[in-house]
Write a protein that binds this DNA or RNA. Structure first.
Lengths: 145, 145
DNA sequence: TCAATATTTTAGAACGATTCTAAGGAGTTG
DNA sequence: CAACTCCTTAGAATCGTTCTAAAATATTGA
């Protein structure tokens, strides 16, 4: 038995390697470590900085530059999606499906709103020569005193 | 009838001074110059950098730091609204009413979508202890080839 | 009007997230 | 294993934005 970390991690190492290969990315130690953190359990919303901390905490030693590179490679491969809600930092969402977000401004945290529940009507058609790439809804929340 | 939008600029200097005073801001040369650029004609979506260029172009000489300060002061006073659609830079919108945006990703430009036309249904209620500050819809556009 | 006081402006330094560089390390293929 | 290509990395560089503290300007009251 190799990994004591969990009895049933949802992303087996084999799956992850296949996933990387399918994306044209070599399954390096660093990418596997990050992939495990990102795709093992439930959906996540991470920044480069916090993923780097996670990795360090788990004992994987890799540079911040690698985290940035990897997040972008994963995003280009369609494994992640970038979410912009805050001018300071960029978030990456492991949920690449159609959905929207709650943003907790106080704490700088994101949470998914399932896309099926939300309907948007009355959008004008896009200006000539352009087409819609995506419609993003962000519900900005503040904590109530 | 005070303002003929045409030859007379819609924001008379006097109005602007009153507006600044009402916001608790002294009507300095710099704030008046920026106020004229921002509130004179139609709604605008500016970045600090581009407003600074505008000001320079018009012959008002002020520092970039002042543009930043002023944009934030105007925002705090409710005269502007901040829009975040791009990790690189922050936009300020002279339309402070309820409305949404088209974002032209190629060109980095924003355009208003009147809020009345758009309806959003099926939003879950916010988590306990929080309340909605604002719901923002961004329609990301790409130019069609 | 002028002096006294409070606010603003500003140049330049500082900052923080992100990207770049170029050199060494690691995965792959035969 | 050799040869090749791709990846990682430390550190420098970038860029938008904020901070600093000193000089400039607006306001107030006499």
């Amino acid at each position: 038995m190799r990994s004591t970390v969990s009895k049933a991690v949802s992303a087996h190492k084999g799956d992850l390697v296949a996933k990387l290969r399918a994306a044209g990315l070599r399954p390096t130690r660093q990418r596997i470590a990050l992939g495990k953190l990102l795709f093992a359990d439930c959906d996540r919303h991470v920044t480069a900085e916090c993923l780097h901390q996670d990795a360090t905490r788990v004992g994987a030693s890799l540079s911040l530059a690698t985290v940035y590179n990897t997040l972008h490679q994963f995003t280009n491969a369609g494994l992640l999606r970038q979410v912009i809600v805050d001018g300071e930092k960029t978030y990456f969402d492991t949920n690449t499906g159609d959905h929207h977000h709650f943003y907790f401004e106080d704490r700088g945290l994101l949470a998914d709103i399932p896309g099926d529940d939300v309907r948007i009507d009355g959008l004008p058609k896009p200006p000539a020569g352009t087409e819609i790439e995506r419609v993003e809804v962000v519900v900005r929340l503040k904590s109530r005193d």
